[in-house]
Design a protein around this nucleic acid. Structure first.
Lengths: 153, 153
DNA sequence: CCCAGCTATATAGTTCGGCTATATACTTGA
DNA sequence: TCAAGTATATAGCCGAACTATATAGCTGGG
């Protein structure tokens, strides 16, 4: 009954390898030198709203110093801006700017175009499966989850 | 009528972000310092058989010098070995060792365990979708494809 | 009301993966 | 047999992300 030998191995590790390859394909195809962490962070700011640096670092899964530096670059490029946290003057709230949203959208278009050959000629059924798989993955990797089960580091 | 707002945007770029997050989650959860390129390369050697350095570099989507260096480390750890190419003394054939296969398997188990919480409590239907999605992705990111449409660099 | 201890961000310094440019060794065809 | 091309190796650089630590601000018990 089971002619799908590939199913013999659980999917998580196969998914990781495939994800890895996809990431590599996209990076090479777009030729973008911008680190993935930038797009990860911007998309988190877009969906989760403004956040403190520490919290953004946690959700983006990098350390706080890494995020501080990342933020500095993004601020220079005016893709994000800092709002003083009135309740705590040590902290900043980081928010995405319209320019940041535009950059994110442009990147998405670029990635979409770069991956077009890879996903060329998918059947309607295959597209449907990928669409639904993405939805599941998005739900399962939701950034808000990180906050509750942190303490990893 | 359309409550699936997420479907409004095509999946490739969403898939990239999700893939990226998964990679990050896996990397953090395993705490592995081993670069992804190692596992990518080893799994290519496992599925595609022994390859020249240049060809392995292409399929692993790194440059040749990067692969040369990577190979040196893997050889020291005895995860791969070099076979002199009888037809061309400039070239080497790189092959995975039993120890390399074992390391790859161990990593897979580790990643599987690390991602278990992320994929906990999936319904049978969701699992089915992910399984099939992985199969599609594997097919679409197959390394042998790279060789034919290279010339990117 | 003030200081010890905690928390939020910033800075310093290191490590390491991956890249480009180039050298070296070998092959091949005219 | 040698010029041009190809396969791998070496050198040097860049930058992302880490750990350790400094600085500044908050907060509660005495």
């Amino acid at each position: 009954m089971n002619s799908h030998l590939s199913s013999a191995r659980p999917f998580p590790e196969r998914l990781i390898v495939a994800a890895n390859r996809l990431t590599r394909i996209a990076a090479l195809a777009t030729g973008s030198t911008t680190p993935a962490s930038v797009w990860r962070s911007l998309s988190i700011l877009e969906t989760d709203g403004s956040l403190r640096i520490g919290e953004l670092a946690r959700r983006s899964r990098v350390t706080q110093p890494t995020m501080t530096k990342l933020i500095q670059g993004l601020a220079e490029d005016e893709l994000i801006y800092r709002i003083a946290d009135v309740a705590d003057s040590r902290a900043w709230l980081i928010a995405i700017t319209p320019k940041g949203t535009a950059a994110l959208d442009a990147w998405r278009v670029e990635v979409g175009a770069a991956l077009a050959p890879t996903f060329e000629g998918l059947s309607a059924e295959e597209s449907e499966i990928l669409e639904r798989a993405v939805a599941i993955l998005e739900e399962r990797t939701e950034t808000a989850r990180v906050a509750t089960r942190d303490e990893v580091a």
